[in-house]
Amino acid sequence: MSWPEALDPKGPEADAVAGLIWSFTGLCAFIWVLVMVALAVALIRRHRQSEDPLAVTIGEERRVEWIVGGLAVLTGLIVIGLTFISYGAQARIFGLGGGDVAIDVIGHQWWWEVRYPSDTASATVVTANELHVPVGKLVRLRLTSTDVIHSFWVPSLIGKADLIPGRTNTLAFTADRPGVYAGQCAEFCGLQHTHMGIRVIAEDDADFTAWKAGQVAAAHEPATPAQAAGKAAFLSNPCVSCHAIRGTTAGGTLGPDLTHLASRTTIAAGTAELTRGTLAAWIADPQGMKPGTNMPTMKLSAADLNTLVDYLMGLK
C-alpha cells in the first residue's frame, strides 16, 4: 500500500501541510505515550493505603498539586507552541499573493465546471472535471457554486476549500512534477456526492500550452459519415438543452461543455474512465451508472447511440 496522499505531497503547499501533520502527530504521539506510562504506573503500583478512605496526607496532596499544576502549565506552553507552528504554516500557505494561472471552478450537483478566463471570449477555456496546470507555476483557483455547497480537495496538492453559492473562495497551489492527481468533493452535496471526482493533470509548460490551444479551438467537424449522423442525432435530441458544443446550435449550460469531451480522461465526474464503451453505457443508461444524476435517460435507437458515440469520441 502506498503512503497516504496527504503525507506524500506533490507540491510545496501540500508539503508544508504534510510537515505540519508530521510534527503534530509526532508530538501528540509522544504526549500520549507519556500519559499512558503515567497511567500504567498509577494502576500497577502497589502501596499501603489506610483503612479510612478519608485519611489522606495533606503534605503529599500538596506535592501532587504542584506536579499537576506544573503539568497544566506545560500543557499550556505546548499548545501555545503548536499554535505558533500552525500560524507559520498558515502564513506560508494562505499568504501567497497573485498566481500565474487563474482558474474558475464552479460546483454543480454533481460535477465541476472549469473555466480558464481570458479577456477575449474566444480564448476562454471551458471544460469539466479536470484541471490542467503547468508544473512549477502558482495556480490560483476561484471557487464558487451554482447550487449547494461543495468542497475542492486534491490531497496530493492542497487541502480543501469550500465552493459556496453567493461567495467566492480562493485556493492557491503549485504542482512540483508532472502527474495526474485525484481528488473528490469533500462536502456532502446530495445524492451523488460520492461520484464527484476531480483530476488535476500537471504537465510541463509546452504540453500545457498545447492543451490550452486545443481547448480554445473550435469543435472538430465530423470526419466520417457516421460522425456526421451522430452530430445530427445530438442536435435533434434533448442533449442540446443541457450541453454546449461550440460552433453548433447546442448551447445548453446545465451540463458540462462537450466541445472537447474526448480530450478528457473520465466521464460523469470520475464515475468511469472515458472509453468508447463507458461513454456508450453512460448515454444509454446514466441512472444505472450514477443513480440520481441529473442526466436523463435518452430513448435513443441503437444506431443513433452508435453514431452519437462516434461523434463525441471525435471531439478531441
Binding site: 496527504a6 501540500a14 508544508a16 501541510v17 505540519l20 501533520i21 503534530f24 502527530t25 501528540c28 504521539a29 504526549i31 500520549w32 500519559v35 499512558m36 499548545v79 503548536l82 499554535t83 507552528i85 500552525s86 504554516a89 498558515q90 506560508r92 500557505i93 494562505f94 468542497s151 480537495w153 490531497p155 492542497i158 487541502g159 480543501k160 476549500a161 469533500a186 462536502e187 456532502f188
Partner: peptide, 21 residues
C-alpha cells in the same frame, strides 16, 4: 486522550484543510 490529541491537530487551520470532512 488519543481523541483529544487529534482534536488539537484539527485546531490548526492548515492541518484541518487536509483532514476536514
Amino acid at each position: 486522550v488519543l481523541g483529544g490529541l487529534t482534536g488539537v491537530m484539527l485546531a490548526s487551520v492548515p492541518l484541518d484543510t487536509q483532514v476536514h470532512d
